[in-house]
Computed example of a mutant assay.
Amino acid sequence: MTHVPSQPWRDWPLGVRVVVRRHLPEGGYSDVLGDLLASGPDGVTVRSRHGDVEVRAEDIAIGKIIPPRAPRVPRT
């Protein structure tokens, strides 16, 4: 029997805010935080403050939906 890894991101609705922890090629991890643009069996695309980031399924360590960003309060 072949083990099929869980892919919870496939159930996330597009447009929600997410954080995805990914494995880095040189070792260690990095988090991608932003709005979910695309998800599928190959991975996800997240729009972060630094641009669109594609994360391959095999690089995803963990991820979850998070609350929307809090509105900025102007300084007085």
Rank of each mutant, 00 (worst) to 15 (best):
T2V: 11
T2G: 05
T2W: 07
H3A: 12
H3W: 10
V4L: 08
V4Q: 09
S6M: 14
S6T: 07
Q7R: 15
P8G: 06
W9H: 01
R10C: 07
R10A: 04
D11M: 10
D11P: 06
D11A: 15
D11K: 08
D11V: 08
W12Q: 11
P13S: 08
P13D: 03
P13V: 07
P13R: 08
P13A: 09
G15H: 02
V16H: 07
R17C: 05
R17I: 05
V19Y: 04
V19E: 12
V19D: 08
V20C: 01
V20H: 00
V20D: 00
R21Q: 06
R22L: 10
H23T: 13
H23F: 14
H23M: 11
L24W: 04
L24A: 11
L24F: 01
L24K: 15
P25S: 09
P25T: 05
E26K: 14
G27I: 04
G27M: 04
G28V: 13
G28F: 15
G28Y: 09
G28M: 12
G28R: 08
G28Q: 11
Y29I: 03
S30M: 07
S30V: 07
D31N: 13
D31E: 04
V32A: 15
L33S: 12
G34D: 03
G34F: 05
D35L: 13
D35Y: 14
L36Q: 10
L36C: 11
L37T: 02
L37C: 04
L37M: 10
A38F: 08
S39V: 02
S39I: 02
S39R: 03
S39Y: 02
S39P: 00
P41C: 15
D42L: 13
D42W: 05
D42V: 11
G43K: 09
V44P: 00
V44S: 00
V46C: 14
V46P: 06
R47E: 13
S48A: 10
R49N: 09
R49Y: 12
H50E: 11
H50K: 13
H50Q: 10
H50I: 09
G51S: 07
D52K: 03
V53E: 14
E54M: 08
E54K: 13
V55M: 03
V55S: 06
V55T: 00
V55H: 00
V55R: 01
R56T: 08
A57C: 03
A57L: 02
A57V: 00
E58C: 05
E58R: 02
E58A: 09
D59K: 05
D59M: 09
I60C: 15
A61E: 07
A61F: 11
I62P: 07
G63C: 10
G63E: 09
G63H: 06
K64T: 01
K64P: 04
I65T: 10
I66E: 09
I66K: 03
I66G: 04
I66W: 06
P67N: 05
P67C: 06
P68E: 13
P68A: 12
P68D: 10
R69C: 02
A70H: 09
P71W: 03
P71V: 00
P71C: 01
P71Q: 02
R72H: 05
R72P: 07
V73D: 03
V73I: 14
P74I: 00
P74L: 02
R75E: 05
T76L: 08
T76K: 01
